[in-house]
Design a protein around this nucleic acid. Structure first.
Length: 269
DNA sequence: TCCTTATGTACAA
DNA sequence: TGTACCTAAGGAC
């Protein structure tokens, strides 16, 4: 589930349900038990997100650092909380809500300084107000690496994952194998602006939709087809299906152990 | 019931 | 570049 929009949405939802209220912290699965015991009686102070990293603030300067990785999932529910299953790494529960975290790559108690270090190694996040799009472009414009790989590099830009990568390159007609140094300032500006809009909508709707109004199923007279991941898209996981715009076959390939999707007709080198 | 796959990352060689 | 890690859903049998 997790690209940056998911994590920012989680920060809002954690804060909504738990901030400033007495919260019971447990780790039914056990891997986070010591930290959960420390936080046991505390209240959630704040929630912050940078790229795919989520930070839950407790006490004065303690943060629970969460990264969902590929498999991590978060499930919110209303009280009373059911008995936890044995895969729940972290449960927060108060008088009205509970939330379960399963399968994260990271769930660790860290200090303010450690949190700062994580921010420092991450690139600008289109969903954060402190983001500097030029910092990303400085790296991209100097790189011979493909734009597809650069968009997935969290040191370059934080929060973009495999879906937003595929979709934003399609929306701007850019071949994923084009080198970063061949992306013009105007193209980067357009990509960044688009990502800000798409990802904000992703936070609002808790899913990724990238199809423009003029290409929606209704507008194109084709049957509605919401992609398996939950939103309407142009190329992500549509290999061998016809492109919504040109009708040609969407292609797929392996790039750095991830699946790449693009339309060779609509996206130019 | 087994196998594959997944919106991710870190580390070893 | 390959592999390890973590979980659950869907499809093939």
């Amino acid at each position: 589930m997790p690209e940056g929009h998911t994590i920012h949405r989680l920060a809002l939802d954690y804060a909504d349900r738990f901030a400033g209220r007495a919260t019971h912290v447990t780790s039914p699965q056990g891997k986070f038990s010591d930290a959960a015991a420390l936080l046991h009686s505390g209240a959630l102070r704040s929630a912050d997100a940078h790229g795919k990293h989520l930070f839950l603030g407790f006490r004065d300067a303690d943060w629970v650092h969460i990264h969902l990785g590929l498999f991590g999932k978060v499930n919110f529910g209303d009280a009373p909380a059911p008995p936890p299953t044995d895969t729940v790494r972290l449960r927060l529960a108060n008088s009205t809500s509970y939330v379960d975290l399963r399968g994260p790559t990271t769930c660790a108690l860290i200090t303010d300084a450690e949190k700062d270090a994580i921010h420092a190694r991450l690139g600008p996040d289109p969903l954060r107000t402190d983001a500097d799009r030029n910092a990303a472009y400085r790296r991209i414009s100097r790189s011979r690496t493909t734009i597809a790989a650069l968009l997935m590099d969290q040191k370059v830009i934080a929060g973009v994952g495999n879906v937003y990568r595929a979709e934003v390159l399609f929306r701007h007609g850019i071949d994923p194998y084009r080198a970063g140094k061949d992306i013009t300032p105007a193209q980067w500006d357009a990509i960044w602006t688009d990502l800000v809009e798409l990802m904000r909508e992703g936070v609002r709707n808790n899913r990724i939709d990238t199809v423009r109004p003029e290409h929606t199923p209704e507008a194109m007279g084709r049957p509605p087809r919401v992609d398996d991941h939950g939103g309407e898209v142009y190329v992500y996981r549509r290999a061998t299906l016809p492109c919504h715009i040109c009708g040609g076959e969407i292609r797929t390939a392996d790039l750095a152990a991830r699946n790449l999707f693009w339309c060779p007709t609509c996206q130019s080198r």
